[in-house]
Measured scan of single mutants.
Amino acid sequence: TLFEALYDYEARTEDDLSFHKGEKFQILNSSEGDWWEARSLTTGETGYIPSIYLAPV
C-alpha cells in the first residue's frame, strides 16, 4: 500500500525524512508506533516519518 503526505514536514533529527504535501511513500516498517520507516517515491530517500501526516492512496 502506498501512502501520500497530507502536509509538509521538516525533519527534526537525522533519522527523520523531510517531505512535501502530496509526496508518495512506500512504507518499509510500520511496527515502531506512530513513526514509520518509509521510502519517498519522489526522492528515493528513506527515513522516519510521522504516520499521522499520511493517508493511504
Rank of each mutant, 00 (worst) to 15 (best):
T1V: 13
T1I: 13
T1M: 14
T1G: 12
L2T: 08
L2A: 05
F3K: 01
F3A: 04
F3Y: 15
F3C: 05
F3H: 05
E4C: 08
E4H: 07
E4V: 14
E4Y: 14
E4L: 09
E4R: 06
A5R: 00
A5P: 00
A5V: 01
L6W: 05
L6K: 08
L6Q: 07
L6E: 03
L6V: 08
L6P: 01
Y7H: 10
Y7E: 10
Y7N: 08
Y7W: 12
Y7F: 12
D8K: 04
D8T: 06
D8L: 02
Y9I: 03
Y9S: 03
Y9D: 01
Y9E: 01
E10I: 14
E10R: 09
E10Y: 09
E10S: 10
E10D: 10
A11T: 05
A11C: 06
A11N: 05
R12W: 08
R12T: 13
R12M: 12
R12V: 13
R12A: 12
R12I: 12
T13P: 05
T13V: 08
T13E: 09
E14P: 13
E14W: 08
E14V: 12
E14S: 13
E14G: 14
D15A: 14
D15R: 15
D15K: 15
D15V: 14
D15M: 14
D15Q: 14
D16V: 15
D16P: 02
D16W: 10
D16Y: 14
L17F: 12
L17P: 02
L17A: 02
L17K: 03
L17N: 01
L17W: 05
L17I: 11
S18C: 05
S18L: 01
F19H: 01
F19Q: 00
F19V: 06
F19K: 00
F19E: 00
F19L: 07
H20Y: 11
H20F: 12
H20D: 06
H20N: 11
H20S: 14
K21T: 07
K21E: 05
K21P: 03
K21N: 04
G22N: 05
G22T: 03
G22L: 02
G22Y: 06
G22M: 03
G22I: 00
E23D: 15
E23L: 01
E23T: 06
E23H: 06
E23M: 06
K24M: 14
K24I: 15
K24Q: 14
K24W: 14
K24G: 03
F25E: 00
F25K: 00
Q26W: 14
Q26H: 11
Q26V: 15
Q26G: 03
Q26F: 14
Q26Y: 14
Q26L: 15
Q26A: 09
Q26D: 08
I27M: 03
I27N: 01
I27K: 04
I27R: 04
I27Y: 02
I27V: 10
L28S: 04
L28C: 07
L28P: 02
L28A: 04
L28T: 07
N29K: 08
N29R: 07
N29P: 04
N29I: 07
N29W: 07
S30W: 14
S30N: 13
S30H: 11
S30K: 13
S31P: 10
S31W: 10
S31I: 10
S31Y: 09
S31N: 12
S31T: 12
S31Q: 11
S31V: 10
E32R: 15
E32H: 13
E32G: 14
E32C: 13
E32S: 14
G33S: 13
G33L: 11
G33R: 11
G33M: 12
G33C: 10
G33E: 12
G33F: 09
G33V: 12
D34S: 09
D34T: 10
D34W: 11
W35D: 04
W35K: 11
W35P: 07
W35V: 09
W35E: 05
W35C: 10
W35M: 12
W36K: 02
W36S: 01
W36A: 02
W36I: 06
W36Q: 02
E37Q: 13
E37A: 08
E37R: 09
E37T: 10
E37H: 14
E37D: 04
R39S: 05
R39C: 08
R39H: 06
R39P: 00
R39N: 04
R39W: 05
S40D: 02
S40R: 13
S40P: 00
S40C: 07
L41R: 03
L41D: 03
L41I: 09
L41G: 02
T42G: 07
T42H: 11
T42P: 02
T42Q: 09
T42L: 13
T43R: 04
T43E: 01
T43V: 01
T43P: 00
T43N: 06
T43L: 01
G44E: 04
G44K: 05
G44R: 04
G44Y: 06
G44A: 04
E45S: 10
E45T: 08
E45L: 15
E45Y: 09
E45N: 12
E45I: 10
E45C: 12
T46Y: 08
G47D: 01
G47Y: 05
G47I: 04
G47S: 03
G47H: 06
G47C: 03
Y48W: 15
Y48D: 02
Y48E: 02
Y48P: 02
Y48N: 07
I49A: 05
I49G: 01
I49W: 01
I49R: 00
I49N: 00
P50T: 04
P50A: 08
P50W: 14
P50C: 13
P50G: 07
S51I: 09
S51W: 10
S51H: 10
I52D: 14
I52L: 12
I52T: 12
I52P: 07
I52M: 13
Y53I: 09
Y53L: 14
Y53W: 06
Y53K: 07
Y53V: 09
L54W: 01
L54Q: 01
L54M: 10
L54I: 09
L54N: 00
A55L: 08
A55T: 14
A55I: 13
P56R: 06
P56M: 09
P56W: 05
P56L: 08
V57Y: 07
V57I: 12
V57N: 04
